[in-house]
Amino acid sequence: MTVSLAASLIDLALGFELAAIGKAAGNRFALEGVTCKPGQDGAIEVRVQKLEATALRLAFGPLVLDIGRIALHELVARIRTDAGAARLAAVEAREAEFSGWKLQGPLSLPSQIRKVWDASQKPAEPAADAWRLDPFGQAEGTVRAQITDAHLLFDADVTVPIRHGEIDFNDATVEHVGPDSRMGISRLGLYVDAPNGRSYLYQFASAPLAGVEFERRGALLSPWVSERGKLQLQVFAESTLRQGRESLDPGLTAQARLLLGRTALSGEVRLGDGVLAMPGVQVHLEGRDGGANVLALHADSVGRGLTAEIASFAARDAVASWQGAQFGFDALAAALALQLLREGPSMRFVLDLGSGKVTKPRFASR
């Protein structure tokens, strides 16, 4: 039986909880300069010079959002009455300041939110260009891994450079005692050629068609590899995401899963300017020349978790649409960090937003 969107939203609202972040810190709301008057088209216009809230905790089942502080300046809300029922038609603020935001929960969507999502989906397929990852097409940086006590293969220091949004496996190095190994990419997947033979770290369910230049052998059926292959990050990732959820199933081999527990990772990747988009959401990253949007990666053990941080995240012209509602802002500047943590068989995430500022945040509904 199909569950209606209205019923799903009611179930979600009934599971909503509001509290303070901790027992020692009570939540607090403050309003300054509140006015109310009739607006255009019979709407009621509410203006608030400043709205501030601190130490809030919002929970939707296993999803928990902690809000250290948020302050909205020059807030304007428009309320309409349709068929005797009041509804929020639009909200806009000149500026929003925030700090100490933390969203955490399981990496998979809770059942309440998944019901709302499923009930809201339309049968039409998303546009072919719904996924855009322009900043990865200009990415520059280096990712390093240290594999220790890896008795399955070797102890090794791995270095993978990223230049102009591309990984050229001819430049990747795998250094260890004895003859060094080489990384590459074939139609079967991502591999390491070690002194004791080839081992696959990641296997493709089917050979990808976009963004990959596979290894090439020497002339006359030579067994020697002359080119290790290349991977264009933007094209490969967009193509994979457009293929749907099935293409995202991890293809890590059993050997690679064991190695991840013994692998420390670090790296820094500078993203380019440009559009990031997924179905229903679009935002434009900016500020590369000023040092913004540099992604720092760190993990003591990749098998147990990974941290990705951007000390200076800068974006503009964001738009998100869902079921006739539209959210957006003109500009955003903040520090953010994302942790992926393994807890037994499941994965959790923790998203931290440090001090930041949003210019002209807004919401509108039809």
Rank of each mutant, 00 (worst) to 15 (best):
A6M: 00
A7S: 14
I10C: 04
A13D: 08
F16R: 06
L18W: 14
A24M: 11
G26K: 15
E32N: 13
C36P: 02
P38T: 02
Q49N: 12
K50E: 11
A53E: 01
A55L: 08
L56Y: 04
A59Q: 13
F60I: 12
G61K: 01
D66H: 13
D66G: 06
I67K: 11
R69K: 15
I70Y: 05
L75H: 04
L75K: 04
V76G: 14
A77D: 12
G84Q: 11
A85I: 09
R87D: 09
V91L: 14
W101K: 05
K102M: 09
Q104V: 01
L107A: 14
L107Q: 05
L107T: 07
I113E: 07
K115V: 04
W117V: 02
K122N: 10
P126C: 04
P126S: 11
A127N: 12
D129S: 09
W131M: 06
L133R: 15
D134C: 07
P135S: 09
F136R: 04
F136E: 05
E140K: 10
T148M: 08
F154C: 11
V158A: 05
V160S: 03
P161Y: 04
P161Q: 03
H164C: 06
D171R: 05
D171K: 09
V174I: 15
S181A: 10
S181P: 08
I185H: 02
V192N: 02
G197W: 06
L201E: 01
Y202K: 00
Q203F: 02
V212Y: 02
A219W: 08
S222E: 07
W224G: 15
W224I: 15
W224A: 15
Q232Y: 10
Q232N: 06
Q234C: 04
T240K: 12
G244Y: 02
S247D: 11
L248K: 07
G251N: 00
L252H: 14
L252T: 13
A256G: 04
R262T: 13
G267Y: 00
L271P: 00
G272A: 11
M278L: 13
G280Q: 07
V281S: 02
L285C: 05
L285R: 01
R288V: 00
R288C: 00
D289I: 03
D289A: 14
L295T: 10
G303Y: 05
L306T: 10
T307N: 08
I310M: 15
F313N: 07
A315F: 08
G324N: 01
A325H: 11
A335V: 07
A335F: 00
Q339S: 13
L341P: 11
E343L: 13
G344N: 01
D352C: 13
G356I: 00
K357M: 00
K357F: 00
K360M: 14
A364N: 02
